[in-house]
Nucleic acid binder design. Structure first.
Length: 508
RNA sequence: GGCCCGUUCGUCUAAGGGUUAGGACACCACCCUUUCACGGUGGUGAUACGAGUUCGAAUCUCGUACGGGCUACCA
């Protein structure tokens, strides 16, 4: 009898949500859906000094956009609330466990001030040991309930002296566990420091909170970034002391997503020339805007597709997956152990492919929005739909639609005259004057029929039709791009096509 | 420095001891197309190094090198 699958994503609301974060969400989500489980979102806001206004709402917006909505969260409710650690602390959910650990002798009070800690690090710092740890080698030299007598400790406690609770790491134990991605991982406890569990302000640190909350929320599988691996022995020990190893979730430490130079970090923003955040993020303090994948013009379907394939594959050569297909195919065991360097070129390819194959109706509102933003009037939605189908092969990112569709709704302001001028002749001018009439009088106004008429007239005037197509394009489009020129003319209509030709003739 | 994790084309990756080491992105060439793309065909390009186990190693073991992460009263 296996317990119900319950997974959680536990971000701290300190800024934008980057690629790695979204991928962690995605793997959680896929795993939960695949196994008919619950996906919980818990806010890890125990560090009040790092509180950033708006960050939590922003995270929900990103998840909404990506289509990875949690079953339980501070926003969506649930039976295991509250879902913010600050509120859980206020409800007194952590203190008792810290007390229990102290009673068991697995944790102790430490009275060292930040200054004293700094001093300790300065004193014991050597070339061989550049960052001394508060561990079994040093704890008896510090001020804590282990080094002090019971009377002294009680006196300090009674006086309300600032204190933290630290875990007492055992001196000769090997802690090991099975990671779903890496297999067995083990650590020598003597080499791990006595991490703070409860801070002076009464807030738990991540280490205590993650264990207590995962237990209370009945989390069955805990997925997080590889950067947590070094502190995993602390969490395993806490599970052992508090709730028993049988109750511990199965761990999977996800490989990191690397930027051009190491771990992708929130601070790196758009420094790489590509977005790192899911959506635009404006730092409330500096007002600095960092562009997101959404605003850059990525489809959410493409975004999760490319993220899923960054470190995972289904064992076949399939690369394009819908969300449902991902749910169906996903397995944690097929996630790679090695970190993956993010490749923006490939990311764009995913988006391009999604744009090409997705139903144009889905693109319609997005493109319309974009055109309106660029002051291009869209009066006819059914025309826009036809245009989108005609040109979506040419668009990698959503904003590409602006250039590719705008000339259907607004005559080009400037024509690329230079592309035509050198080969321009009076004969060609005569041709186009005649062709204007052809267009106006065409009864079968379809691309094929128009092209035939065009070629017949060219033959009549003894000009190679190929020499005339580019000028026509320039007159209709303004530049050397766009779909087949007779498709454009038909969508434009007889009148508009004729007018653009007349206008173009004046400029050549 | 210590600890942990990792290492297949430039990048993402496949290959449950036996393959001419496969695919995708990017790049190059050709075809299609008298625009730009899409598409098609082909090409360049990888098992970090050294030992060992084995008839046989990208695959198992060890060492080395390299890369990354952690080393806060941050997560």
């Amino acid at each position: 009898m296996s317990k119900k699958v319950r997974v959680r994503f536990a971000p701290s609301p300190t800024g934008g949500l980057h690629l790695g974060g979204v991928r962690t969400v995605l793997y959680n989500y896929l795993f939960a859906k695949k196994h008919g489980g619950d996906f919980v979102l818990r806010i890890e806001d125990t560090d009040q000094t790092r509180y950033v206004a708006g960050a939590e709402a922003y995270i929900f917006n990103c998840l909404e956009w990506a289509g990875l909505v949690p079953n339980e969260s501070p926003l969506h409710g649930g039976n295991y609330g509250p879902y913010r650690q600050s509120e859980r602390k206020a409800a007194g959910m952590y203190q008792q466990y810290a007390d229990q650990l102290i009673e068991q002798g697995h944790a102790y009070y430490a009275f060292d001030t930040p200054e004293e800690l700094e001093k300790m690090r300065a004193i014991y710092k050597t070339a061989e040991n550049p960052s001394p740890q508060y561990d079994h080698t040093l704890r008896m030299k510090m001020r804590n309930s282990l080094s002090l007598s019971a009377a002294e400790t009680n006196q300090l406690l009674a006086a309300g002296t600032k204190k933290v609770v630290r875990i007492k790491m055992p001196q000769n134990e090997t802690v090991s566990f099975t990671d779903m991605i890496r297999g067995e991982v083990s650590f020598d406890t003597a080499l791990v420091d006595d991490k703070v569990l409860l801070k002076a302000d009464g807030m738990p640190t991540y280490h205590l909170a993650v264990v207590v909350d995962d237990y209370l929320m009945q989390i069955s599988h805990a997925f997080r970034g590889e950067e947590w691996l070094p502190s995993a022995p602390v969490h395993v020990l806490l599970w052992k002391y508090l709730f028993g190893l049988e109750a511990m979730p199965q761990w999977a430490h996800l490989p990191l997503i690397l930027g051009p130079s190491g771990k992708l970090s929130k601070r790196d923003g758009a420094r790489y020339g590509f977005p790192v955040f899911a959506m635009n993020w404006t730092d409330p303090k500096t007002n600095e805007l960092t562009e997101g994948f959404k605003e850059k013009g990525f489809l959410p379907e493409a975004f999760i597709n490319l993220l899923a394939l960054l470190g995972w594959n289904d064992g076949t050569e399939k690369e394009i997956f819908s969300k449902d297909e991902l749910v169906n195919a996903f397995s944690m065991e097929r996630v790679h152990a090695a970190g993956a360097k993010f490749d923006y070129e490939k990311a764009k390819w995913f988006n391009h492919d999604w744009i090409k194959h997705v139903d144009s109706n889905l693109l319609l509102p997005l493109v319309k929005d974009l055109l309106l933003q660029n002051e291009i009037p869209v009066t006819d939605e059914s025309l826009l739909l036809q245009v989108i189908s005609l040109i979506k092969d040419r668009c990698t990112l959503l904003p590409d639609f602006v250039q590719q569709t705008s000339f259907f709704f607004k005559a080009p302001q400037q024509l690329d005259v230079a592309a035509v001028k050198s080969k321009w002749t009076d004969e060609k001018k005569t041709f186009f004057e005649a062709f204007t009439e052809t267009v106006l009088q065409q009864t079968d106004f379809t691309p094929a029929a128009l092209e035939t008429a065009f070629k017949e007239l060219a033959a009549e005037k003894n000009i190679k039709p190929g020499e005339l197509q580019l000028p026509l394009r320039i007159m209709l489009v303004g530049g050397k791009f766009g779909p087949p020129v007779f498709d454009i003319a038909v969508l434009l209509g007889k009148k508009e096509t004729a007018e653009r030709i007349k206008r173009g003739l004046k400029q050549f």
